[in-house]
Design a protein around this nucleic acid. Sequence first.
DNA 1: TGCACTTTGCCAACAGTGTTGCTTAACTCG
DNA 2: CGAGTTAAGCAACACTGTTGGCAAAGTGCA
Lengths: 368, 368
Amino acid sequence: MGRMERRPAGANLAGLRDHNAALVLSLLRARAEGGSRVQLAAQTGLTPQAVSKIVGRLLADGLVVEAGRGESTGGKPRTLLALRPEAGCAVGIELDRQRSTILLLDLAGTTLRRRSVDIGLASGEPERVVGALAKGVSQAVRAAPDGAKVLGVGVGCRGPLDYETGTLHRPAGLPAWDGFPLRGLLESLLDASLDVPNVLLDKDTNVAALAAPAAVSGSTAYLHLADGLGAGLLLNGAVYRGARTNAGEFGHQVLQPDGPRCTCGARGCLEALCMAALADDDPRTAARWLGIGAANLVRLLDIDRILLGGHQIFASPDVYLRAVADQIAEHLPEPEWQSVQVSLTPAGASAVAVGAAQLVIDSALGGI
Amino acid sequence: MGRMERRPAGANLAGLRDHNAALVLSLLRARAEGGSRVQLAAQTGLTPQAVSKIVGRLLADGLVVEAGRGESTGGKPRTLLALRPEAGCAVGIELDRQRSTILLLDLAGTTLRRRSVDIGLASGEPERVVGALAKGVSQAVRAAPDGAKVLGVGVGCRGPLDYETGTLHRPAGLPAWDGFPLRGLLESLLDASLDVPNVLLDKDTNVAALAAPAAVSGSTAYLHLADGLGAGLLLNGAVYRGARTNAGEFGHQVLQPDGPRCTCGARGCLEALCMAALADDDPRTAARWLGIGAANLVRLLDIDRILLGGHQIFASPDVYLRAVADQIAEHLPEPEWQSVQVSLTPAGASAVAVGAAQLVIDSALGGI
DNA sequence: TGCACTTTGCCAACAGTGTTGCTTAACTCG
DNA sequence: CGAGTTAAGCAACACTGTTGGCAAAGTGCA
């Protein structure tokens, strides 16, 4: 259960087995009604016998159970298989400046426990904050069902940060956190008390994009409008981070080179334009700008689905949904773009914490 | 040598072997001076013995040769391995409106033969045009070295098109080509006369991005400024196409919502702004706009390297190189962005044809 | 009711991958 | 010139998915 490798790696038999097991699991996760071995064979391209063996291992591990029979199609009816949600769970943390949310998610994506605490990046020394988080994780883990394996802890946080090293980079106004080994310390604290070897740190927008029914293929953009404006990109079904985990800086695209000055130093950034409109209590104008940026994004990356989140969105959701859909329809009138879906993130205000746990589950189960 | 699959597929032993062989080949292609088995083992994570076996198969296939010895590091000196460039070759076609370029490339990326012909999308019935292209391919293939395997034919063309089906979509002013089975017909024509099973059709900007020393990891954007403005994206070392091969519509990002009307219907598209400046014979202003768009792109996708191409660029290359670098430096002053490289495409005016052949080579060799 | 047919899933033997343990080859260094 | 070090190969091995054959459990028609 090592950390995700970026450089190309050779594959061996163990990797082959894990890959196929993860593939079968992801297919079973995608369809709630359950699937049979033959169906899985058709979808994976593997032989039915290979699927039987793989499923046999998953049954032995308790990750999957046989769940009744399907209808006959002229012969022996199919034995249905279903993911056992209580076989594993993961902890998700939304780490904010002043507050944090810690929750426990099972394999099916059901929230088993959820707590908010007055601990945040700005509430003290990094060592103490991480210690408090570790304590919160320990409490959350106690809510895990009997026999459930705790797969790890995911932390979603505002960037800039480095996914590879698990550290923040020059967070505004918080110099003590710059380069502080957030993931490393949390991992060692938990490893001492629990059996939680896997800790992942990622941008809030990246993990929030995962807090929606999994699209194995296709491309999704999660747009987050709160204190700032950022995006999380799921390209071909996987989080796209770039080499330095800096991808998704959606808010700082210049849309008006002679526009208002942004906190980043440039002029006429999308974020500056949206924030100026919100300061004037004009969400409609902010929504229009957001829509223009979204249309640019859809066109540049051939995006299939847009998810909206963040407290500014939730304050007047219909305004934003309408404006984004309108701008896409206006700027991309061709028929092939009509299928772009625009919706609110189904996890609502918990999107970051839910997605952080989901990131761990995806990673532990192989996450194709 | 099937077509690239988008949906997740199960892996078996044959796939495992091909994956590792392709990995070793790509590492050998990346370094011209050649590498040893031990180095390859360290880079791939495989055991030295596994690499020995893999290299043994590649030697037997003639794809790799032993090329002298390296310096000793205290013990037995390393046996250097090198790709055998003449083991295989691929045909690349740049298919334009009035003219086309057909060239033959070997595994090392050396152009063995290059011809331009007065055949293009606008020069007749699709059937006749494809027939003429097939004839040109046959002639090019005759220049292949003895024993060289012809891996396939790549075609680079202006979008919109569909990589999966190998057809154009509503090309402006060329209704006969809409949905015409370009790839399918070329494949069957060649299959009858030659042994060229693999034909690929992709956007000109996508393949042009491949016409540069391979960056196995990292992200590259190729910006093409000619009659229009588009981009080819290499994300994590692989071409990113999106679900409908529409990704890379870089030129139609709106940068001035009240700006000049673009051919696409919107106002203030980057392409419209650049073209207006060029119509005024003002490349400096066009270059400044291109730079702003490039900075947006770098920030959004965490791009490592920018390549510039297209005849407008080559008309005054220094102006564009300077302007793009300046805008990136201005909009992204933080130290982590200072390493972004900006350069002209090394393949110059042949970038599309070279890249089209490279796409085939990448695909046939596994292309990680 | 009985029998042919279809479909599902498993048992056993198999081919072929990377891994492990050990040996041989080739060079540096004292 | 011998000890130490690094590179590469040989043989046995564990384990993967594949292949061929077969039992189980349904449907459908005479």
